[in-house]
Design a protein around this nucleic acid. Structure first.
Length: 849
RNA sequence: GGGCGUAUGGCUCAGUUGGUUAGAGCGCUGCCUUCACACGGCAGAGGUCACAGGUUCGAAUCCUGUUACGCCCACCA
């Protein structure tokens, strides 16, 4: 092909034109005819579209893209789809705020509904579930366009014909189908049980979504009256508001203070409820007064005690986080029922104040409440402490209640290649610490509904034990609008009829099927056979316990294999204070602004320097370094290509040229080895180091010869060498600097560099001695130093260069003599053998003025 | 309480099975308009490799312990 090098090449605005070319030419289209062995399949994380993309996304998605580009150049058909995680709570919240609405399932559907012109946060409009879901769908479509535009700007080499949404039809069908299969195999079940509950969102949440937060609290000390009349047993509690829900006191079996009382009863203050004193290993003698007040339920330990000691359930908290308006029937005394009216219908906070006040009034509080700071469980997306309520929920078994399954899932983790390998520990400690099955139902609206109906008995009672299920070919279904086979719509909610399961699946219950959704499980058997199990799951370490583990669980049950062969775990972006960057800290920079300011290649360079699994500092400076590197590649390519093509058949034969190529061979081996080990950062670093030396040392050394100053043969060797080196370097940089490499490649090669073959040592001439380049560089530097120290231009002539070095190095240097003299404007060179050990020395005599 | 990771010049980081005077970039200082690049080039200064022991001819690298920071898991009356 004829060369076409621009006179004044520039990086400005190259992204748009090149991205358009990729799209037009289908550069990243997946080849569906490729067999499994030739496919590299990536389970791309579907970003939450209701959020905004931040620097962290740019960071980790660039890592994946570099790997995708490497595999593509290695000849793989890269299966690199993009998903949008649009279902679930984050979208609901965004829709509520964006439109000023609130979903109320009791409101009838109004087809003519139009959202308010200006959302009023204080007065949200209550709308039907269907209208609400329609608004969710409308907004996510817009969000997804914005996301795709940014991903394209970042140069992600995904096949944009292969996108999926976690609320989309394929995802709904896959989620429901997998659920039905889990149910059929008894891997899923529903149960009425104590459930961790968020009172703000009024939904159950899963263990994996909990986080601890330090909160102020206080120990309140008060006594329970002993049955034998001998005074009281004092407890200390941070949750006095739950006194009315007390079902027992528990102490350690070996605790001598309480041992005589085990099996007796005590009576609660204020409410006069008689509860047993029991023994349990979990009780800690050194905590509080050494005896715990068990309520249903104050925390998860209460649940353990309640279950293992078979205690009754006495719940006083409603699902909205308020105490029951009516006095519970287990409080029978007049004083107790009267006391309860003081806290009835109050929030937890108000109820606590009321109980403390009551205790104070009656002089029952021992001492003052003692302030402490303790960690409290929160829903990771919530801002009020979690409560525990009893409710019917769907679960998927995950080993939390079965040691064999837990072991099996832990072993599955061992089958994965973890990059970096230490991330395996995160997985293992999570699996080992599981203490319950995976709660997948959510009492929300914008999610995938459970494909389940229940018969309603003649008495109007719902029979949860005999669910009515659709067949797989009916999926997806919405049980709230579709009816089960054999029933009329008129029978919905009627005695003798049916009713829909009202819940939706948690978003992880869908995103845990991303391999199945993306690979066309059951819907496209050919594609599935060619892509599953996938090669790579890239993701952040913060969601190993959720996304990674959940995906493993689903694949283990259905396919008996891990869903992928490798997991590449990326680190976080830290702001300059070494804190995790997050929106709430107000330190997030918009990705588009960065791409515009530093160029996509500059930003990608910074990202690709973040080693796998390592947290990386946000550093615009590095982005500028990347931009400089891109610009250097542009200019060096221009220089080398403008020298003119090497004549046909020209081969490198100059020792300096061959020496460079020897180094290049080593580089190709290093970069390839690094990429195969998922260490893209090392591949980049090695390539970059070599490239700068190529520019600063090699190009400077051979420049005169390449111009033809030493004859045509010598020039041909120089030019042929540059062509090899340039071709290899452009390809080695392609996974990282995807735009500038495409630009410079287009000046002299056909097709996209991203479809070119990854360089191999086989294409690089052999026979060079690396030592030649190694000794030439410091000799040239010595000449430059002399000129710099004497404040002369580098063009200033040097009369004489005396090199003292050992014989082998002198021999190597002699082979570079011609280039060295020309590059340094040196008239003569003397070689002196070094006597004994020591470092080489260079003595430079500059010419007179 | 258990576990994982990190600690190298002002800053961000390399340092692959232990091997000669510890590297790079940024920043800083000085010089050079040089015919690919001044959105550049050349050069310079700058480090007790967190600390204490140990193994070894030799340790930033291996072992033991300590400290600091970050994170994961468990516990939280």
């Amino acid at each position: 092909m004829t060369r076409s090098v621009p006179d004044k090449p520039s990086l400005d605005g190259i992204e748009e034109a090149i991205a358009a070319r990729w799209e037009a030419e289908g550069t990243y289209r997946f080849d569906r005819t490729a067999e499994r062995g030739d496919v590299y399949a990536i389970d791309t994380p579907p970003p939450t579209v209701s959020g905004s993309l931040h620097v962290g996304h740019v960071f980790s998605y660039t890592h994946t893209d570099a790997i995708a580009r490497y595999q593509r150049m290695r000849g793989k058909a890269v299966f690199y789809p993009m998903g949008w995680d649009d279902n679930g709570l984050p979208t609901e919240r965004r829709v509520e705020n964006h439109f000023g609405v609130r979903c109320d399932p009791a409101v009838a559907y109004d087809p003519s509904f139009v959202p308010p012109e200006k959302p009023d946060d204080k007065r949200k409009v209550s709308i039907s579930r269907r209208s609400f879901v329609e608004l969710c769908e409308r907004l996510t479509v817009e969000d997804e366009k914005v996301f795709e535009a940014l991903w394209r700007r970042l140069g992600l080499s995904v096949d944009w014909d292969m996108t999926y949404a976690t609320i989309g039809t394929a995802a709904r069908r896959a989620s429901q189908r997998m659920f039905l299969r889990n149910l059929a195999r008894d891997e899923a079940y529903s149960a009425e049980a104590p459930t961790i509950w968020d009172v703000t969102f009024q939904t159950a949440v899963a263990q994996a979504e909990l986080e601890d937060r330090e909160r102020p609290g206080a120990y309140h000390r008060f006594g329970f009256a002993r049955a034998d009349g001998n005074g009281t047993i004092e407890v200390e509690t941070t949750r006095p508001e739950l006194l009315a829900a007390c079902v027992a006191l528990v102490a350690h079996p070996d605790d001598g203070r309480y041992r005589p009382l085990f099996g007796t009863t005590v009576t609660s203050p204020l409410f006069g409820v008689e509860v047993p004193v029991l023994a349990h290993e979990l009780a800690q003698p050194d905590k509080g007064s050494g005896i715990a007040m068990i309520c249903t339920f104050g925390d998860t330990t209460d649940v353990t005690w309640w279950r293992e000691l078979q205690l009754p359930t006495r719940s006083i908290l409603e699902r909205n986080g308020r105490t029951k308006a009516e006095c519970p029937d287990w409080i029978t005394s007049e004083e107790g029922r009267s006391a309860y009216t003081r806290l009835a219908g109050k929030s937890v906070f108000q109820a606590q104040a009321a109980v403390v006040e009551l205790l104070g009034e009656q002089g029952l509080l021992v001492g003052e409440p003692r302030p402490i700071t303790h960690s409290v469980k929160f829903f990771e997306k919530g801002d009020r402490p979690l409560e525990i309520v009893t409710s019917r929920q769907w679960y998927i078994r995950n080993g939390g209640r079965n040691a064999d399954l837990r072991t099996a899932l832990q072993d599955r983790g061992g089958e994965l290649g973890w990059h970096p390998s230490f991330m395996r520990h995160r997985y293992e400690s999570w699996v080992q610490g599981l203490n319950g099955d995976w709660l997948i139902s959510r009492q929300r609206y914008f999610g995938i509904p459970f494909p389940v109906w229940y018969p309603v008995g003649p008495d109007g009672a719902v029979d949860h034990d005999s669910p009515i299920l659709p067949s797989e070919d009916e999926l997806p279904v919405d049980p709230s609008s579709d009816r089960p086979a054999g029933y009329d719509e008129a029978q919905r909610g009627q005695p003798g009829g049916f009713t829909a399961d009202p819940d939706v699946m948690d978003t992880w219950a869908t995103s845990s099927l991303s391999p199945q959704i993306a690979c066309g499980w059951e819907d496209d058997p050919v594609l599935f056979a060619r892509t599953f199990p996938m090669d790579l799951r890239p993701q952040g370490h913060d969601i190993i316990r959720t996304w990674l583990f959940a995906t493993m669980v689903r694949s283990h049950f259905e396919h008996g294999t891990p869903p992928w062969r490798n997991a590449a775990i990326s680190g976080w972006i830290l702001d300059p204070d070494r804190k995790k960057m997050s929106k709430s800290k107000g330190n997030v920079v918009t990705p588009l602004g960065l791409l515009e300011e530093h160029g996509t290649d500059g930003v990608r360079y910074w990202a690709a320097n973040g080693r796998p699994g390592t947290d990386t500092a946000f550093d615009p400076n590095q982005m500028n370094v990347g931009k400089r590197l891109a610009r250097k590649l542009l200019n060096a390519s221009r220089f080398a290509l403008n020298l003119g093509e090497a004549p046909a058949g020209a081969v490198p034969n100059d020792p300096v040229d061959l020496s460079l190529l020897a180094g290049l061979r080593r580089l190709v081996t290093d970069a390839t080895t690094a990429f195969d080990a998922y260490d893209y950062a090392r591949a980049l670093e090695r390539t970059e180091t070599f490239f700068w030396s190529f520019c600063d040392d090699h190009l400077e050394l051979v420049k005169q010869r390449a111009y033809g100053d030493h004859g045509d043969d010598a020039a041909a060797s120089a030019r042929a060498t540059m062509e090899v080196a340039l071709s290899v370097l452009q390809r080695l940089f392609a996974p990282f600097l995807c735009f500038v490499t495409e630009e410079v490649w287009s000046w002299w090669q056909d097709g996209s560099v991203h479809r070119a073959a990854w360089p191999t040592v086989a294409e690089i001439p052999t026979g060079g001695d690396p030592l030649v380049a190694e000794v030439a560089a410091p000799a040239l530097a010595a000449v430059r130093r002399a000129k710099s120290e004497q404040k002369r231009s580098l063009l200033w002539p040097a009369e004489r260069l005396v090199v003292t070095d050992d014989p082998a190095r002198l021999d190597a240097l002699r082979q570079a003599e011609g280039d060295l003299l020309a590059a340094g404007s040196v008239s003569s060179i003397e070689y002196v053998e070094l006597a004994g050990d020591g470092a080489a020395t260079y003595d430079v005599t500059l010419g007179a003025a």
